[in-house]
Amino acid sequence: MLLISRLFKGLDKNWLDAIAVTAWGALLLNYWLNGSLSILIHPSYFWLAAFTGFALLIIGSIKAYLLFKYPQAKPSAAGHVSLLPGNWAIGLLLVTAIAGLLINPRVFTSSKAIQGGVTENSAITRSQPQSFRSQVKPEKRSLVDWVRTLSAYPEPDTYSGQQANVSGFVVNSTELGSNYLLLSRFVITCCAADVYPVSLTVKLPADQQYKADAWLAVTGQMITETIGGNRQLILVAKNIKPIETPRNPYEH
């Protein structure tokens, strides 16, 4: 903080304003164009971020143009009460925009899923049960469709023998044996701050193990098994294929 304050001390506040606002415009447009928005917010709000990016770019550019053209003009903002001392506010905005431009946001890892309670009963991690599509054929269901269907009709025997074809990232749980993993996805409602994890337990073929965070497409058959005293639905993997991290890593 002190460094930020010293760094910007003495620099023209108006120019810093223009640069910071332009930088935020550039950052939002950059995220929109390079696809990073899908890691940060729900697709419904991409347009809002892109629109704001354009608006901030225009506002910052106009301000910079006016400062360049009329360098002696005084700002019309006299008598303003600042909330943060000195140039801290603008420094924070500028440093954050630069950091965002230099460091691309990354998809959440399995540690976030564990922190979010993926290994526990997931009821507590969800604000409300979501709608589900029970009409979807079993092999067409996504991982989230499976979890939602299960939360509506929890009897595992209902699904025994059904085919499944799902994808997600690996969470290794110490509570399960080494031949099991949790295939997981995050569900997003608004932005990455509200994501919650959902998962299916996958039983691996005898000689296979996968590292946490690896993305897999798994096909197999559902069975009922008792693990740790709980009867639960297990996907017995027949075919496991490593896949790239999807462009949009969240389910909705």
């Binding site: 890892t109 932005c191 701050a193």
Partner: peptide
Amino acid sequence: MEQLNNAFTLFLSLLVEAIPFLLL
């Protein structure tokens, strides 16, 4: 490091979602 990455993503997501409303 992983947790720092998670925190950074979370931090940016809050800002990217909130700044349009701040501007409006």
